[in-house]
Design a protein around this nucleic acid. Sequence first.
DNA 1: GTTTTTGCACTGACCAGTCAGTTCAAAAGC
DNA 2: GCTTTTGAACTGACTGGTCAGTGCAAAAAC
Lengths: 214, 214
Amino acid sequence: MESSTATGGGSTGGGGGRREATRQKLYEAAVTLIAEQGFSATTVDEIAERAGVAKGTVYYNFASKSVLFEELLRHGVGLLTASLREAADRSAKEGGGTVAALDAMIRAGLVFIDRYPAFTQLYVAELWRTNRAWQSTLMVVRQEAVAVVEGVLRKGVESGELSDEIDIPLTAAALVGMVLVAALDWQSFQPERSLDDVHAALSRLLQGRVGGNR
Amino acid sequence: MESSTATGGGSTGGGGGRREATRQKLYEAAVTLIAEQGFSATTVDEIAERAGVAKGTVYYNFASKSVLFEELLRHGVGLLTASLREAADRSAKEGGGTVAALDAMIRAGLVFIDRYPAFTQLYVAELWRTNRAWQSTLMVVRQEAVAVVEGVLRKGVESGELSDEIDIPLTAAALVGMVLVAALDWQSFQPERSLDDVHAALSRLLQGRVGGNR
DNA sequence: GTTTTTGCACTGACCAGTCAGTTCAAAAGC
DNA sequence: GCTTTTGAACTGACTGGTCAGTGCAAAAAC
């Protein structure tokens, strides 16, 4: 269903769907390899080989190795952000309140990581690196994701559900970190656990049933 | 001065001898560079230059680039573990209970990260990578650190202070992640905040004053 | 006199990026 | 219909450069 049509219907660009399919294959190959080995240790030859494509094709489709990587990052974080936002909105519609919304976002985060573990790994590994070409891309993209969480927290404070003592940016970062790290640990070191287990543990922590009042 | 190595500390100039001093300088140079650029993107020549040492000296002191890195990891995580354990023990001696011990460990973690940001960054970036030579080293060393947190949680459950519903390994991972990510975010994106601010935010989260009962 | 460091030339592997050439399906010409 | 042309997509050998690691004689430190 993919490549045979060169017609491309109303799509822009001369080649139609073939090109997009190639790019997709390259993304997929790159994300796994870079997550496993890191950006510098992954060669363009490897990416091309894993995608089943010649090296030249990589450079036909992307200006450089790092441009390929940057577009990968943008695409992936876009997906995550959309997923978080959707979870928050749905929860809001169901009228569960702020804590329910946070909980829904935790679950959405876990589902995302479960589905795209390689991307998550790569994101975490690169996020705090300074001195790299794509650093600014990463910062923008990070802020987008954290902002979704901050938005929910802010609403909670405004509505009086959450104490106005809480530090919104720091708390948002901590929550994101909690989910990220717990999920990566789950994938790497306790893959036998179910998503529900992990969600339950994080939920308990969020709701203060670990260190909390009783 | 700013020494962001996790390798400094303890041994004063006198004890180690000339060779040890050289190794320290190499650790310090390597940790910063690798945190900034990643392992593969950092060259041995760079490390030697930053350490103010000839390239041959690197190979006189370490069998290879990756051996240097592995020893760096072991050393750094050793310091972190010791610091966490000490915080937990001191808190236990003061009789503050489990939550106080967890809180003390959070602070110890923050202090460590504040002192050795480069090491922390590098550790997080490498921790979930598969396929690398030092992967097994990392797993051992990670388990050591998480085990300290798990120990405290376990004690809390046994003494009835914590619900026995909590999932100890997952909760420990989540707590570690929370501290790690919040601290790295603090360093990278909100460096103007004080350690106390960050500690307070995390403390609140731990004690359930965010999503918790009231 | 032994250990450690230096300086530097050298090698062999590896790798990002290039480019001249190939493929093939659709459009144009007949 | 059928041949020819076009050009986007793709190919893979090749280049120029980089880098881990070596070898070694001489200096420095202890």
